[in-house]
Design a protein around this nucleic acid. Structure first.
Lengths: 181, 181
DNA sequence: GTCTATACGCCGATAGAC
DNA sequence: GTCTATCGGCGTATAGAC
């Protein structure tokens, strides 16, 4: 029945960082939820920052898998649609959705985190794969907005009116339609 | 030449909160940039939270102006386009753009701030004005996405490639096209 | 209006026993 | 692997002189 402690720390930290923000979450809170003292955390992670690193690595790996796939493809309309679908599909794995949300909500707090730079770089390269080199600004921007639409759930203050599933489904539809503009 | 000190505190706090995040910005930093001690700040604002309140008030007032206008209009396609245009136009006033960005980037850190609840409520009502009552989920979501396309600058990791103006112009174009989907 | 001085607590992190 | 104890530092905030 005993779960790996390291994994439980990640799980609790991920939830609290997302709900309250990275800076607002102390190691004491994480330890308390886990039922240990904060000193115990230091056996599993060198620093608070290290917990973040372990989480971001998950997301970077996912983005790089996507990037690798994109590069192996011809850049046509069907490839772009499939890329958006695959990007959206990553969010159907709960842990990946949680990590993505954590990163969404802590961009500013983590702005100096080296792994975040890696992630942004991957996003830039991914959105570049959406267009032929030298594509006009509006095309680049519209295609990038397709990715953005999939993150918009955070901003859509419609909770209570529609389920998460409805919002996600409609977001994907909008993202795909954006590719056709 | 002497500017009002209260206004200068707001200006510096707004910039630092946006760049570094609310939690990561201390009153000491603000005071240092202003060239006074942090104790001096307490003459102008009761608490750190009070500085935020004074900033959020600006945004809430803008949203409510927009909401009032929306309510006085018939809900047709041209009204929706005009509403999006007016929403976008608010961001052309530098101070309002700065405040909006500050709020975008500190949603999580300020999640318990009472003024933030007011702002979210105003956004919900504003996006409700975009549709007839009882409109289907996809319509509501797509029209709401139109607003949020205008916030996409944060996510578009295209800085350096395109100017802020290009991104804003294209975002508005996409927002307007979303209304027609 | 701004200062110095200070209260008081929580933070991340470490040392060393068990 | 987890504990107790503790460190140094910085956080917000206040008191009271000027």
């Amino acid at each position: 029945m005993r779960e790996d402690t390291r994994a439980r720390i990640q799980e609790i930290a991920l939830r609290l960082f997302t709900e309250q923000g990275y800076e607002a979450t102390s190691l004491r809170e994480i330890a308390e939820e886990l039922g240990v003292t904060k000193a115990a955390l230091y056996y599993h992670f060198k620093t608070k920052d290290d917990i973040v690193t372990s989480l971001v690595d998950l997301r970077v790996a996912e983005l790089e898998k996507l990037l690798e796939w994109a590069r192996s493809q011809e850049k046509n309309a069907e490839m772009r649609r499939e890329l958006v679908r695959r990007y959206a599909e990553q969010f159907t794995t709960p842990r990946y959705l949680q990590v993505a949300r954590f990163l969404e909500r802590n961009q500013t707090a983590l702005r100096n985190h080296p792994k975040l730079a890696k992630m942004r770089e991957a996003m830039i390269r991914l959105s570049a794969e959406m267009c032929a080199p030298g594509a006009p600004a509006t095309e680049r921007i519209i295609h990038s907005l397709a990715f953005f639409a999939l993150h918009a759930g955070k901003w859509l203050t419609l909770e209570g009116e529609f389920s998460d599933e409805e919002i996600e489904k409609a977001s994907l539809e909008v993202a795909l339609r954006l590719l056709e503009l």
